[in-house]
Each structure stands twice: as structure tokens, then as C-alpha cells.
Design a protein around this nucleic acid. Structure first.
Lengths: 168, 168
DNA sequence: TGTGAAAGAATGGGTCG
DNA sequence: CGACCCATTCTTTCACA
């Protein structure tokens, strides 16, 4: 009996999460083999992990270049807006723009960092005009020249839990 | 004969890709219903899309906060290295580091932008020391204060009707 | 390419150790 | 919690158009 709150994740949970965050399409049965459990047991655990919010979603990662998105940009924005209501409007606008893949609020010189996927320079210009219309004046745009690494894999395994003392 | 390489994607392909990039777990049969095709036809198309590289991978997105990753950072790096071999070593080092989720080569003042997931300040310090050992001197780190949007969904559907007359 | 049918797996619920 | 069973659903192959 550990704690009342919510079961802490055990090694098997971590293993399952790690498999799924790398290859979501691996079958239940295959996971069961790898973690030495039965397939229904794995199923139960995955459902629990989903319900408790450890797994947010499952997605297919498409190849941007094959689909014509050659222009990945990082846009740094300083908003001189300081009313929180107006900031809410601004942020909601970012969320609604399909070319904005990510938006983060940052410390430092700029308030927001946007990751933006555009097909060509014309699309990029259209996008920047949209930003101007939102009242954003201070923008700095950096072009992504080359993607060295792109992943969503959190080091849940590598961190310090690692002890591959698999029983038997 | 039009193009030898690969048939251009049609509307149904785009629809399938769009469904999968948002919800990878949707069953073949369900997709078939949505695009008005039979289940085997959808299966064939998805296999083709995978083989031709339109779909790179399928992953589960985990919840960073639930897993103790409260410190998302963006690290800007200027390398004063100009030998391409040494740059290769550097980039490979970035790829190997599990806390580095993304690494992009950028235009602008800094050469590299890294997105880094750490659990706490101690981990962050450890990470920055690793960078120093690699000979990196000019580093600027911005903390992610809040995530406004996080997505890998390319606007293949929303942007405009994808109907390129380009071969390959 | 597409469809329909059919075999072979995997999923998901229930019950019992 | 986990294993086993069972009905249901999904995947994947095949003949055929």
C-alpha cells in the first residue's frame, strides 16, 4: 500500500508509456510481450493512463517536406499589450491560426515564441500581415534552415528511473 | 504516362492524412465511413502513404506536467565553430541528448534553437554544463512560462485546397 | 483502383483467482 | 491487481470487376 492519492506509476507503466510515445501503433499484444504481462492487463493499464491524463493524444506525424511545407519559421513577438483581456484575445488568435504549430509564452526579451509552418514566402507574408492586423509591432522572424532533431519523446525512462533490472 | 514516381495525392488521401494527424487511433473502418470508401481501400491507401513517406511515424503525446517535466526551455546557441566536421559532432550530440526534444538550425543571431525538457532546475543546470563541455560558450536560455498551443498538425486541409500540379 | 466476403488478430468487458 | 474466457470489432488478404 503506497499512498491514497493516486497510484504512483510503476516501472511497467513507465515502460508502456515509453513504448507508446515512440511507436503508438504497437499492438497491445506486442506490448504485453515486452513487459511480460497479459494483453488485457496492458489494456487496463493503458486505459488508466489515458483516463488519468498521462497520455494526451495519439497522432500521426506527417512529413512536412513531402507535403509542401518548406518554410518552417520561428517568430518572436513582443506585445506591448498589458491588458490581460487583450492578451487572451491575442492568444486565442494564435490558437486559431492553422499555420501556428506551437506558441509559448517565454521569459526574456520577447513575450511569445511561435513555430509556424508555411508553404512558401507568399504564405509567410500573408501570415505576418495577420500578425500586424492583431496590433503586433515588434516581430522578429527566424527561418529554420535545417531540422537537426524533431521529437516529442520525453525522457521518462532516461531520467533516473532507469534500472533495467527486469525481473526474470 | 504522367509521372513515374508517385501519383499526386487526391482529396481522399488528404482527408485520410488529416484524420490521422489529429487522431491516429481512429480505426480503419471509421475512416472508411468518413471518406465514403471501403475499409480495404483505406487500408491500401494508408499503406501507400506510409511507404511513400507521407506519414513519418505515429506517436502518443504524453502530458509533460503529469510526468514531472515542469521546465520547458528554449536554448539559443551561437557556435563559433566553423569546421563542418565539428558541427556534425555537435549536432549528433544534440540528437543523442534525451532532454533535447527539438533542434533547429536558424537564420539570425543564433545558430541553433533547442527545445529542452527538464524536470527541475538541477536537471537544467546539468544540461547546460553538458553544453559547456561541448565547447559552446554563447548560450541564451529562455524559460517557457506557459504553453499556449502545442500541435504537430500541418494545415494540409485548411491552408487551401492542396492540388499541386507538380510532379513529385 | 475499387468492392465484398472471410480468415485471422486484437480489443474490451466480465468473472474468477 | 492480474489471468482466462468470450463476444465483438478490426485488420488484412483474396478473388473479381
Amino acid at each position: 500500500m503506497e499512498s491514497i492519492v493516486s497510484k504512483v506509476l510503476d516501472q511497467v507503466d513507465i515502460q508502456i508509456l515509453d513504448i507508446l510515445q515512440k511507436q503508438a501503433h504497437v499492438s497491445n499484444a506486442e506490448i504485453a510481450r515486452r513487459v511480460n504481462l497479459s494483453s488485457p492487463a496492458v489494456h487496463t493499464r493503458i486505459k488508466r493512463l489515458e483516463n488519468e491524463g498521462y497520455i494526451s493524444q495519439q497522432v500521426a506525424i506527417l512529413n512536412p517536406e513531402k507535403l509542401g511545407f518548406d518554410l518552417l519559421c520561428f517568430v518572436f513577438i513582443s506585445s506591448n499589450i498589458h491588458h490581460s483581456e487583450k492578451l487572451d484575445v491575442l492568444e486565442e488568435a494564435f490558437r486559431q491560426m492553422p499555420e501556428v504549430l506551437e506558441c509559448h509564452c517565454l521569459t526574456g526579451e520577447y513575450d511569445y515564441l511561435l513555430k509556424v509552418a508555411n508553404k512558401d514566402r507568399r504564405d509567410l507574408q500573408t501570415f505576418i500581415r495577420k500578425l500586424n492586423k492583431l496590433g503586433i509591432t515588434k516581430i522578429q522572424t527566424s527561418l529554420g534552415l535545417r531540422e537537426i532533431k524533431y521529437s516529442s519523446v520525453l525522457p521518462i525512462w532516461d531520467g533516473d528511473e532507469v534500472d533495467e533490472g527486469k525481473f526474470e
